[in-house]
Design a binder for these strands. Structure first.
Length: 806
RNA sequence: GCCCGGGUGGUGGAAUGGUAUACACAGGAGACUUAAAAUCUCCCGCCGCAAGGCUUGUGGGUUCGAGUCCCACCCCGGGCACCA
């Protein structure tokens, strides 16, 4: 028999499968559907990396398994083609993004094919093609017409190096998600999507998905729902000596209305001062502080989070509605303008931040929740007390548990109970070229006018200088701005910003079901046939970006009756990151990047697929290892040689039990993505088969079938070698016989006081306490521990253990 | 600080409360070979000549029996972080 040559085998079968259209999802099939989706790649110049390889191998195994279980599997692939790197590459080299992107896509396709991934290329999509972004623009208009897309001037995250604004999710901690440079705040007119309208659904519907619990928690925290009270504090101007009952007041949001009697001052956010008439005496000092605050970047604000700066508003006081105490008002940037009401009541005794501020500014600290009740002597605090207790110093509420007091005190001061979210609206404008244009026209007479649907797509022009200047490159494209107002017909100009690429990827999974439709983003019929996605696999880094946005889009579409489901991704799993062998992230600058192409050349796609799955649990972070890939390769060579032992004339009795056990184990493991243990079970089976002189054709076929989702090429080759004419990938998954797993005898461990001293093999008839005890009690290994001692107890677990307690 | 994960041989990792260290990698010994590679066989947690003892981050607990459950602590990784 010739040697196992992965190069010729893999090429040969890839060509045959492609010609046969093997992995196409069938439009009309009586079989139940399974939509298995990968997070589609950004076609970068670097090509497919090991993270992609891990992700797509896992879903490929899963898809192949489901096909063998006779599901109609829908497993598409496409390209998240818009984005900054192509544009930056263009700036550097002069190669147009459209050209480089399509070269990169070609390379990705070659690589995907060379790994034997069973994807349906007939449904390929490219978010940068006009046929696709026409519908991205259509979604924009859908949101716009329903008041869910709006423009406003706002403090925005501006990345100086990317020359564009970013969404909050992309500027966490004041660092640009893409280039890791500092983000500054700029006041700009920007387009927003009103994702906050759906905050409640986005939280509640997390109850209905099968996602990793850590991902669910991460989304919940990001949306950040909290319930509290809005309470009014009147403002008194000391100079005017008015306590004008109806004039000025501040509203604060608090989750701790129970501590209202402990309020010793009020703090308002800098943003609030800017707008209002406050009547303080030290106007100049306050203005100076506001200027200072504006200069500080987010990075600085978080870096010195111990130092809480702020300025007293002189000449005015707030009145605590619970006890009519007059308390000072401060402006401080530890209070955020965009959250709650932009003002807080400060209770230094029961809030850590207020405590720090009070210490710094020598403000009174008044404890009103006491843990020692009914003793009302409260401890001296060296930090805020956040625990439970009963109220003290709180007038008629003394003694009430602080939990009960929340509602009572809110009612007492006529506050109202509200729900707030940390989630903010999604900023979608980008001042860059390589994205979908925003379909809005500005007219001198009619103002902001949406592009009529019939005029979509608004095509991305080519006569553009995309050197970033801080202004949108499209602003200076002649052809792009040669446009008339759809309402009055006068000369107008187009919105020059493009959309965040996350808009494109928020609905791509819908397009796969009807990728060439020019009348709708997808037909209702096809949407109904394939959706929702049954299994979604991708990196955990997208949990508050893509996965939040895509859920938001689905909620919008559901609301306007385009789709029938609430949640787009029923089941979600993440693959862990693959680190370099030194345990660090793979990066070009560190020179530790492993290129899948090289591994494929040296060991073959099958070996790479097997190795990357065998490295450890799918969701764990793992380090690449060049050395241990020898194991999977040797294993495949053993499977190859096993072919020579196939013979017709012997029964498979000896390996029958392990064969059926393995069928069961491998199937169960694939279903829960425990692929490393599935592989080890397959290795054990092969080890057993090697010990036999001969193996039956049936057993050999079975192991090939079990292996075929993992290593599609070598199994196809061997399958044909032993005489099959049809592809192994059209065969059914083997069925195990439960009776063959249970054999006539079991091994029982014999313990004395919980320590194993012996084992015994008994027949099923003898698998009971009396028989086993009788068999082993006189054995030397047992007797030496029990002799002369009183047996207190015997525990017997059938088929497992006999424990003698002395 | 808060919220999730996780700590098992030289290494990657297995173990529905029931024989810890499966399956691999690396290492060692041998067979085949003129030789090497490949392949095959055996060994491989620690202490001990052995009998045996010890061992799943540390210390307690529950249990006939704990890597697995409970409590406290230590360490590592990830996410969030002035959201009142």
């Amino acid at each position: 028999m010739e040697k196992y040559n992965h190069k010729t085998i893999e090429k040969k079968w890839q060509a045959i499968w492609e010609a046969a259209g093997m992995y196409r999802a069938l439009e009309d099939s009586p079989k139940p559907k399974q939509y298995v989706l990968d997070m589609f790649p950004y076609p970068s110049g670097e090509g497919l990396h090991l993270g992609h390889t891990e992700n797509y191998t896992a879903t490929c195994i899963y898809s192949r398994y489901l096909r063998m279980k006779r599901f109609n599997v829908f497993h598409p692939i496409g390209w998240d083609a818009f984005g900054l790197p192509s544009e930056n590459y263009a700036i550097k080299t002069g190669v147009h993004p459209d050209v480089s992107t399509h070269q990169n896509i070609k390379n990705f396709i070659t690589q995907i094919k060379s790994l034997g991934f069973s994807v349906d290329f007939t449904r390929e999509i490219d978010t940068s093609s006009p046929e696709y972004y026409k519908w991205t623009q259509w979604f924009f208009l859908l949101l716009y017409k329903n008041g869910l897309a709006y423009k406003k001037k706002a403090k925005s995250n501006w990345c100086e190096s990317c020359k564009t604004v970013l969404a909050n999710e992309q500027a966490e901690g004041g660092i640009c998600e893409r280039c890791k440079n500092e983000v500054v705040q700029k006041d700009l007119e920007q387009w927003f999507f009103k994702i906050t309208d759906f905050a409640e659904d986005l939280i509640n519907d997390l109850n209905d998905v099968d996602w990793p619990s850590s991902s669910i928690t991460a989304q919940r925290n990001w949306i950040g729902k909290s319930e509290g009270a809005i309470i009014k504090f009147k403002i008194k101007n000391e100079e005017l000596k008015t306590t004008d009952q109806n004039s000025k007041f501040i509203e604060v949001f608090t989750t701790r209305p129970d501590t209202l009697f402990g309020v010793t001052y009020i703090v308002v956010a800098p943003e609030l001062i800017d707008g209002g008439e406050w009547g303080m005496k030290n106007e100049e000092e306050v203005r100076e502080y506001l200027v200072q605050v504006k200069r500080r970047t987010d990075l600085e604000r978080t870096a010195d989070d111990k130092e809480k700066t702020g300025v007293l508003l002189k000449g005015i006081k707030a009145i605590n509605p619970s006890n009519q105490e007059e308390i000072p008002i401060f402006v401080a940037d530890y209070v955020l303008g965009h959250y709650g009401t932009g003002a807080v009541m400060a209770v230094p005794a029961h809030d850590e931040r207020d405590f720090q501020f009070a210490k710094k500014h020598n403000l009174p600290i008044k404890m009103v929740v006491c843990p020692n009740y009914p003793k009302t002597i409260c401890p001296v605090l060296d930090s805020a007390y956040l625990g439970k207790g009963n109220l003290v110093m709180s007038g008629e509420f003394n003694g009430v548990s602080n939990e009960d007091a929340k509602e009572k005190i809110t009612d007492f001061v006529k506050g109202r109970w509200v729900t707030k979210y940390k989630l903010r609206d999604w900023l979608v404008s980008r001042q860059r070229y390589w994205g979908a244009p925003i379909p809005i026209i500005y007219c001198e007479t009619d103002g902001e006018v949406p592009v009529p649907e019939k005029d979509l797509p608004v095509k991305l022009p080519t006569d553009v200088d995309f050197l970033p200047t801080g202004e949108s490159p499209l602003k200076y494209s002649k052809s792009f701005n040669d446009v008339l107002c759809p309402l009055c017909g006068k000369k107008a100009r187009r919105e020059a910003d493009t959309m965040d690429t996350f808009v494109c990827s928020s609905w791509y999974y819908l397009r796969y079901v009807d990728p060439r439709n020019s009348k709708e983003f997808a037909s209702k019929e096809n949407l109904k046939k394939w959706l929702p996605v049954d299994m979604y696999m991708g990196g955990a880094e997208h949990i508050v970006l893509h996965l939040m946005y895509a859920r938001f889009f689905a909620k919008v579409l559901k609301k306007f009756n385009y789709i029938e489901f609430n949640e787009p991704f029923k089941k979600l799993r993440h693959q862990g990151m693959v680190l370099a062998s030194d345990g660090r992230k793979m990066s070009k600058s560190l020179g530790n990047v492993v290129n899948p192409n090289e591994i494929i050349g040296k060991y073959g796609a099958d070996t790479l697929r097997l190795h990357i799955m065998f490295l450890g649990p799918l969701e764990d972070m793992k380090s690449w290892n060049d050395e241990s890939i020898a194991g999977p390769r040797r294993f495949l060579e053993r499977v190859w040689r096993l072919c020579e032992k196939v013979s017709d004339n012997n029964d498979e009795g000896r390996i029958e039990q392990i064969l059926h056990k393995t069928i069961k184990k491998v199937g169960e493991d694939i279903e829960v993505f425990s692929l490393n243990t599935a592989i080890s079970a397959l290795m054990m089976l092969v080890n057993e088969m090697e010990k036999s002189e001969m193996i039956t054709k049936n057993s050999y076929e079975t192991i090939l079938l079990l292996l075929s989702p993992f290593v599609p090429h070598i199994t196809e080759e061997l399958w044909h070698k032993i005489g099959n004419k049809q592809s192994i990938h059209l065969a059914s998954w083997p069925v195990f016989d439960h009776n063959k797993i249970i054999t006539g005898e079991v091994t029982i461990a014999v313990q004395v006081n919980g320590k194993v001293r012996d084992t015994v093999i008994v027949s099923l008839d003898n698998n009971n306490e009396d028989m086993v005890f009788g068999l082993v009690s006189t054995r030397p290994n047992v007797a030496r521990w029990t002799l002369g001692k009183k047996i207190k107890k015997v525990i017997f677990v059938p088929g497992k253990i006999l424990n003698i307690v002395v």
